[in-house]
Design a protein around this nucleic acid. Structure first.
Lengths: 225, 225
DNA sequence: CTAATAAGTTAGATTGATCTAACAATGTTT
DNA sequence: AAACATTGTTAGATCAATCTAACTTATTAG
């Protein structure tokens, strides 16, 4: 058999790596049981696949210990994620699908091997760096750029931030921001957050203003203090 | 295991059915060896898969006899073909790929299970019935409509035809046809064909005219006599 | 019509991904 | 610390898709 490229995993392997990635986002301690539940396969199946993934250098693993992606494994996962998120955005923006419909299709499309196909989607959408859920889209090399982009309403009270991007940008959102004198590059300080309606009280340019969660979750920011 | 839908084949099965379909277009007598060559797998592999396809009702087969698709098998093949051809057209028309590049991508996309995905492509392109190679695109039910659409230069000398569609339609082609007074619905008679440059001599509305193969292979016609 | 060649089949092995049953290690609770 | 529950592992089987080696049936060329 022709020896496989390090970055070329089977579809099954890709799905395991993706699951490990997603689980480690939440818990950081990924176990065989977690994978078994999330992938809906038996624990012995996971056990043997985990050995396989280790042998291929995608994960580090020792008996009874938690599972973690290696650099290579992370890169493979990131590249699948890139394909998944580009596909979802493309389906919504260019083909008119609703956000509920696109996940299932993207789960299949993400396994297609054709850099050109995904690069073209990327190009047609103007190289987005975050998807409309605010999740970053890794670049062609599998790097998560814009790690400094988080939603405004995920930042702590007292922090000062600069708006670096918008997600789910729309004419309505732009008009709203414009009416308040807020734009890309604006520097804001978070004064308080309401637990009742999730609105955020901010100050900028000496003014005080309340932003609803509908707005604040669309503002992607870099924390500067 | 949950019993599989009759029309739901594995990707491998789909590829065998597709190969059988294509081979039977040319030779009508599809053999194990033909499949072995075209799919680049060994003859024993084909042998066992052929048994499997027979067991699932996709093909008819008896030892040492030729292979033929059943109605169900033909439908499955047609539905894959539909997905393949819609994908190719979409990649060219909506994503700006060249015709050389799209086959490989379509080979992968054709296995995606999502009627909505392909129906949307279909819709965005205005429900084409032939692809730019002049090959028919089966409908959602796997039926080949427009069997009466063939290229003008594939019709016999003396036959009378009506232009029913254009393939690889372009401004240039439309302007050319307009300048000769030819349009959809025009009735032509084929007087002769040159074996030297593949041009076609036709008569219509009392006029005599020679059409280059570049033009005649883009005219899809229905033979009326 | 035989003999050579091509085509098809059978048998048995392999690989990837899965399962169940049984057993072992780890962690938790009183 | 002992008992129980959870988690992980081993062993062994299955299934789809593939292979090679060896054998059989068909076809074709003298």
């Amino acid at each position: 058999m022709l020896s496989r490229d390090l970055l070329m995993a089977t579809i099954t392997e890709e799905n395991y790596l993706k699951a490990i990635f997603h689980l480690s986002q939440k818990t950081d301690q990924v176990s065989i049981s977690d994978l078994s539940k999330s992938l809906e396969v038996s624990k012995p199946t996971v056990n043997s696949m985990v050995k396989n993934l280790k042998a291929h250098g995608y994960i580090s693993y020792e008996k009874y210990k938690p599972i973690a992606l290696t650099k290579v494994g992370l890169k493979v996962a990131a590249l699948i994620l890139r394909k998944h998120r580009l596909t979802e955005m493309y389906l919504v923006e260019k083909m008119g699908f609703g956000w509920e419909e696109v996940h299932e299709i993207a789960e299949q499309v993400e396994h297609i091997e054709s850099p050109a196909f995904f690069d073209r989607m990327d190009e047609l959408m103007g190289y987005p760096t975050v998807d409309p859920h605010g999740s970053p889209i890794p670049d062609k090399k599998g790097e998560f750029l814009s790690q400094n982009k988080k939603k405004l309403n995920d930042c702590g009270i007292g922090s000062e931030v600069i708006i670096t991007a918008l997600r789910m940008s729309s004419k309505g959102l732009l008009e709203f921001l414009d009416s308040r004198g807020i734009a890309l590059g604006s520097r804001l300080k978070i004064l308080s957050k309401s637990t009742f309606d999730n609105s955020v009280m901010i100050s900028y340019e000496g003014k005080k203003e309340s932003l609803s969660d509908k707005v604040s979750e669309r503002l992607l920011v870099e924390e500067v203090s």
